[in-house]
């Protein structure tokens, strides 16, 4: 599904990501861990194609196609989607109107999907304006439910969300990633950023990666890595750098 090779990314004048390699197969969901400011969001924004993340080296292959130079909407059309950590507020633009635009008359039942994540009361509100932390995440999930991407990047889907809503969001994301389907039939892939790991109770994940200082330092079983970090912090990662 996604193959990243030797990727270097600059934000402004500063190189934030150095030599990233990442491979996510069809049907797999990976977890991206790492301390604040290590470059996790930068990686997701770069994969999605945001223009102020400049790729100076390396490439991104998506479904076998080189998308390194493509605009965000071309990547979205090919099946990428993202839940944003901090989506912008767009004054005057109603959530309902965005949902209609995303659906491109594909005939999704917008009111019903909105109800499923308790966002039916928000369709006439300006997107993200005055939304609480949890409401922002639910609005993001709702947009993804309509977009229905094949590869979903989730940037801290559970941060700031209460337990009840984590299970709501977790279930919705689980269905987006076809977690209800048998592993052999599962075609959707994901990449999840989490600090707490709560979301992993709702999503079986296949592999974990730890990012430190703009580099992916180690890979392994996501739960084991998370356990390690919970016990020992990121100290060992930071020490890794000196190896």
């Amino acid at each position: 599904m996604l193959h990243i090779e030797d990727l270097h990314v600059k934000v402004g004048e500063k190189e934030v990501l150095h030599d990233i390699n990442l491979h996510i197969n069809e049907g797999e969901t990976h977890v991206l861990l790492g301390p604040n400011g290590s470059g996790k969001t930068t990686l997701l924004m770069t994969i999605m194609g945001f223009s102020n993340y400049t790729i100076t080296e390396g490439k991104i292959l998506f479904k076998g196609e080189d998308v390194t130079k493509m605009h965000a909407h071309e990547r979205a059309k090919r099946g990428m989607g993202m839940l944003f950590q901090r989506p912008p507020t767009i004054s005057g633009l109603k959530l309902g109107k965005i949902l209609t635009a995303i659906s491109h008359d594909k005939g999704e039942n917008i009111p019903e999907l909105a109800r499923s994540v308790h966002m039916d009361g928000f369709l006439e509100r300006d997107i993200n304006k005055g939304f609480s932390g949890g409401e922002i995440k639910r609005s993001e999930v709702l947009q993804l439910l309509i977009q229905n991407p094949d590869f979903i990047m989730l940037d801290e889907p559970e941060s700031g969300v209460d337990l009840e809503n984590i299970s709501l969001i977790g279930a919705a994301i689980g269905s987006l990633l076809e977690k209800d389907k048998h592993i052999i039939k599962r075609q959707k892939s994901g990449l999840v950023i989490t600090h707490t790991g709560y979301i992993l109770d709702y999503l079986e994940t296949d592999r974990g990666h730890v990012m430190c200082d703009g580099q992916i330092k180690c890979h392994g079983n996501p739960r084991e890595i998370l356990m390690d970090i919970k016990q020992r912090g990121y100290k060992e990662c930071l020490e890794c750098r000196h190896n």
């Binding site: 005057g92 109603k94 635009a101």
Partner: peptide, 20 residues
């Protein structure tokens, strides 16, 4: 670009924001 990441092309995204 937020709207583009949802599959709207640049012109659609621009018009949608202006409409708002």
């Amino acid at each position: 670009e937020y709207l583009m990441s949802r599959g709207l092309d640049e012109d659609e995204a621009t018009a949608t924001i202006i409409r708002g």
